[in-house]
């Protein structure tokens, strides 16, 4: 099944790109972008498995949930970023270490 393998490969590339983006960006917005990449990589996998295997519509429905979840998560995360900026005049995640042990 070359189409499925291709899809999984695209998903894996997207996932790794997202993780690398999360790990490397010091800007909080950049990190959120990385998160979006990771979520969409997962969505791609859901849809691909739904399309090429006997899962039926489950994958598509689950990916719809993930999209909604991602939107909500982005809203909350952006609110946190704005508040953090209000308090610290920066959104550098390395500066946000108040919870360190």
């Amino acid at each position: 099944m070359p189409e499925l393998n291709f899809c999984i490969l695209i998903g894996a590339v997207l996932f790794v790109s997202g993780v690398v983006c999360m790990a490397t960006k010091r800007n909080a917005i950049g990190v959120l972008m990385g998160v979006e990449l990771v979520l969409n990589a997962a969505n791609l996998n859901f849809v691909a498995f739904a399309r090429y295997t006997a899962l039926g519509l489950d994958g598509q429905i689950l990916s719809l949930f993930v999209i909604v979840l991602a939107a909500a998560e982005a809203a909350v995360a952006l609110a946190i970023a704005l508040n953090f900026y209000n308090n610290h005049l920066t959104i550098d995640v390395d500066r946000a270490d108040d919870l360190h042990g």
């Binding site: 993780v19 999360m22 790990a23 490397t24 960006k25 010091r26 990190v31 990385g34 995640v93 390395d94 946000a96 270490d97 108040d98 919870l99 360190h100 042990g101």
Partner: peptide, 18 residues
């Protein structure tokens, strides 16, 4: 002794997860 693991650095946590 485990408190030092909690660095509070987000990117580090992502690295750990990955």
């Amino acid at each position: 002794s485990l408190r030092f693991v909690q660095t509070g650095r987000l990117r580090q946590y992502v690295m750990f997860i990955a």
